[in-house]
Nucleic acid binder design. Sequence first.
DNA 1: ACCTGAACACCGTTCAAGT
DNA 2: ACCTGAACACCGTTCAAGT
Lengths: 206, 206
Amino acid sequence: MARQPARRDTTQPTETTQHTGTTRRTDPLTVDAIVDAACELIAEAGLAALSMRRLGAVLGVDPMAVYHHVNNKRQLLSLVTARVVGAMVLPAADAAWAVRVRGWADAYWAVVVANRDLVAAGLADPVVAAGGIPLVAPLTEAVADSGIRAALVEPNVWLIVDFVHGAALGAAAPLRHAADDLTPLRAAFAAGLDTIVAGIEAQAGG
Amino acid sequence: MARQPARRDTTQPTETTQHTGTTRRTDPLTVDAIVDAACELIAEAGLAALSMRRLGAVLGVDPMAVYHHVNNKRQLLSLVTARVVGAMVLPAADAAWAVRVRGWADAYWAVVVANRDLVAAGLADPVVAAGGIPLVAPLTEAVADSGIRAALVEPNVWLIVDFVHGAALGAAAPLRHAADDLTPLRAAFAAGLDTIVAGIEAQAGG
DNA sequence: ACCTGAACACCGTTCAAGT
DNA sequence: ACCTGAACACCGTTCAAGT
């Protein structure tokens, strides 16, 4: 969950995210700093470790101060989701449609696998999901370039998005792979994409 | 979330699930009665309303009594998941493979849509997911009957299972359908299945 | 404008004590 | 064997008060 390289027009604020959590900050809180701290907390100890109270401690601030910049925890999760999804690395736009479909799916799969419980929470909660509407435009273009009927573009985009969600979240399921090795899961995902690409091709050629 | 018609070899226990929650039960607690009450609570007020304390109240029992029959809340959710998935209506086994694939996917989709947050919680938690390993055997047979290469059967089974998960959980996402009408979501799901079936056909015929 | 601290209404779970 | 009740260590959020 890397910090976004986005507009960082202020000087780096005083370091307040030491593990003691006792440091008092000297400069005003910002939404950006709050999301930074939330991402760090999640990266270090998982989504379950993210509470408004712990977040305040990490920021060196009264837990309730956060509510002055963020409506509630759901909105915070939505902001975190937006940052995570925004960090997705999109594939080059000049390859063949099938290559672009695979590239997009692989990139999104990696993001979802790395943030499984965040995405699981988001899928169940429209407020959180709103922060994570993925950058589907390049995928839509790639699917459209297959030559498929226009009415079939959108359902096939959702097929791919939904397959990524299910496959990445299924990483938690037992019996599908060893706990610490995602390789077989990744291979099965690639094979599933093969079927989807073959299906789109068949529908485009018919 | 219908009560399972399974072995109910004891007489119906005294009604203790009235909304007052104050009734004291006269007969000993059973795991079955606990799962019954949990399902009712979820059906009435959603997964968020299911707490060990409220469960005790509904059962007319000290909240901690439940811990004598169930290890913890995760195991309870696993048991609830097992019951929900076990209620899935499997399609007839004598149809063409594509019909059986579609029938299985439709039936599982209905189960997952009706229990979205339970499944979302389960996908993120292996203990819960263990209760929900769906009855994939009929799906595996249907996919195998397509004539596809043996090595491709399992990945395509997961493709379908994962697509169902993603599509059903995506029902919470905004902009994809009106809050109270799942019809467009269902139509998109059917179209996605078309692509998968076409893809399997293409791979089988190659 | 921004932050604090007490308070409200909850959680899951442990553990010694009861019957 | 089974249930109870107090206790522990937490939650998200509201709200009046401070600076």
